[in-house]
Amino acid sequence: MEILRYVSDAFVVIGIFFAFAGTVGLLRMPDAFCRMQSSTNISTLGLYGAVIGGLLKAISMIVEGYELGWTMLVKIAPIGLFSILANPIAGHSIAKAAYQHGVRPEKEFVCDAYGEDEFDD
């Protein structure tokens, strides 16, 4: 199954592209909240591209007759499942904490509904 290996490589390359874009955004974006948006880029498709590519690689190992492919398959899948459940919670909590801690961008927000409603001082 040569074709399965090429498809899995293509998925990993897509993941590398998005991880690269996220890293560049993390280094270039002007303020902390925009950097969070770029880091979401890494933790979604930068991760899932490689995880889906790894799953397809494990399937190709099974097709070629290696027993090890099954171990890989049942252990890579939970990593993707856990990160799709947990990463948004971490992102949400760190964004809220950043706002309450007093992190503000140098350039003002276009509109700031949260500050008006929750912290009207």
Binding site: L26, S43, V51, T71
Partner: peptide, 30 residues
């Protein structure tokens, strides 16, 4: 700020995670 460091450290963790997955497939060790 400390938030920038925390977010960047989380990204480092995710990227090393992916590298571990790929290296496990390469070396064949679960």
């Amino acid at each position: 700020s400390v938030v920038d460091r925390a977010v960047a450290a989380d990204s480092v963790e995710i990227l090393t995670d992916v590298a571990l997955v790929l290296f496990a497939l390469e070396s064949g060790r679960g």
